[in-house]
Design a binder for these strands. Structure first.
Lengths: 290, 290
DNA sequence: ATCCGGGACTAACATGGGTTAAGGCCCGGG
DNA sequence: CCCGGGCCTTAACCCATGTTAGTCCCGGAT
């Protein structure tokens, strides 16, 4: 690496000095549950095997029986499903700290996982892992919340895709990436280092790479994004979020302990407004309410 | 209702005589875990409140704190998320036996649930429910598997939508509905009673209702579906599945106990073929592997 | 019977996005 | 220093799908 990094510097993940190989995982768990020092130590001492993968290599093949739980510790990977004709649909992204299957109930996945950028992965045996869950139920809860978050993201993708123009979809996806990458030190306040090709992005949104390119141009012309090498910047976070209709709430672990007496008292409607009822507008144009 | 049902009879759910109100739930749990008589009894005696909802009514509003777990016992409902402009994106369907949130970790949903056809819903208090999980861990496992199935379906929708023509998408969705509805007695070997409007279907696929209509016409002309009132029939299950590229495996609870020694010995590649690796075709045309 | 609303269906027109086929740039390898 | 492969980019053409604006039919409510 050059002493003076060319013209624009990339955001770099900041490995905590003295932290264990699984620190990204611990950080993620901590966003969901309170993790005691004891648990951290235990996780730090977990026997594991570390493997490296080049971009495009499979971390997990679809319906391949896995004897271990795999935690991404470096790089970016994608869940995918094979389509006929050799195409692939990307179903989600994995970032450092993410687990191949948080809800470790089955011994094979219904999809594959492939490295997008070069990846480092920790493999922990199923047995060791189960033991951890038995000893510390809060870890189990944490993992289940991770699985829940994956679900929330998948639902958001489902919502985002379909029924709106591709450039808004793209903007939404970029906002999500910004938040998630920042959480693992791969992004800064106004942008992030982007390991994804336009083809990847196109794949996620279900559009052609040619059109993805048009979309990126458009976002650039609108001044919503700026591209400097592999760094993608948002001149105004607020502006692109508004354009995308992005609300990052779904990426949050919604606090730690749901307070039993959390009745929302009238008058404090909780920043986000109340969700409209289903039939509100689409179906009946509200016969007497123009 | 006429003594002689006009010309085509609808498939009807068959309420087991003497079964409890939650029998649909028990049936679903049984597809995942072995449920003892004792547990069934306990579930049968669960204190609950039954509510009815007209079509389009909300069973759950988005981010509404819920004090109970809701189980659909009759009718069909949909998960949805509100879009700007009063539109809604449908994220999934609920059938009898389905639970508003199988993985009961949060006290509010990130989406709403609305009745599609008139629904009957059982509400079980959070407390009672948690007690059940504590007493019978296998029930907890069953619920987690239900959550997993929801995830698998969402992933399949993500895969199905995008990157392929709308008529294949539609065919795939209809195949899925056929399987799921049949499992709850709302379908027969060659079709099912369809409570969904074309608008619902269009919404799921992210296309306009006008185009959905065109698609349905097309499928009819191709002889892939037949519509008789509210009953949708498949002249040939095999044909439409092939057209859709449908493999129902993802809807299955993949057996009950993953046998520890389930090493697939070479020579028995397990009906479905091995999934291709990620880079197989799309990316590099396989420089030295023709 | 009659009225009414929702849903299926049609038609005409506009356009977003797909496809194909290039060309160019940058970077890593020989 | 040159070469080749990814990836971004552009252009031309065309089809799938969206939009708007209806009509018609059925079944439920009055």
């Amino acid at each position: 690496m050059d002493p003076v990094q060319s013209e624009h510097h990339a955001y770099q993940p900041h490995p905590q000095p003295g932290s264990s190989i699984l620190s990204a995982l611990v950080r993620k768990l901590e966003s969901f549950e309170i993790i005691s020092e004891e648990v951290k130590q235990r996780i730090g001492r977990l026997p594991l095997r570390v493997a490296s993968f080049a971009a495009r290599e499979d971390l997990v093949r679809e319906s391949e029986p896995r004897g271990e739980v795999r935690v991404l510790i470096e790089g970016m990977a994608g869940r995918y499903k094979a389509l006929d004709g050799g195409r692939h649909a990307i179903l989600g992204f994995l970032l450092p700290g993410d687990v191949d299957e948080a809800d470790a109930l089955a011994d094979e996945l219904d999809h594959g996982i492939a490295a997008i950028s070069p990846c480092k992965v920790a493999m922990v045996s199923r047995f060791t892992f189960d033991q951890l869950l038995v000893d510390f139920p809060e870890v189990g809860r944490g993992f289940r919340r991770m699985a829940r978050l994956d679900g929330a993201i998948a639902r958001m993708w489902l919502t985002n895709m379909g029924q709106r123009p591709a450039d808004r979809q793209a903007a939404h996806l970029l906002c999500e990436l910004h938040v998630r990458l920042s959480a693992v030190g791969m992004g800064g306040p106004d942008g992030f280092t982007n390991p994804l090709t336009q083809e990847h992005l196109a794949n996620v949104l279900g559009i052609s790479s040619v059109h993805m390119n048009r979309v990126m141009q458009h976002l650039r012309e609108e001044g919503l994004i700026r591209i400097e090498g592999h760094v993608l910047r948002f001149p105004s976070s607020a502006k692109i979020r508004e354009y995308a209709g992005f609300d990052g709430g779904y990426l949050m672990g919604e606090g730690r302990t749901p307070a039993p007496e959390s009745q929302p008292h009238a008058g404090a409607p909780d920043s986000r407004q109340r969700a409209p009822a289903y039939g509100s507008e689409t179906h009946f144009p509200t016969p007497g309410m123009e």
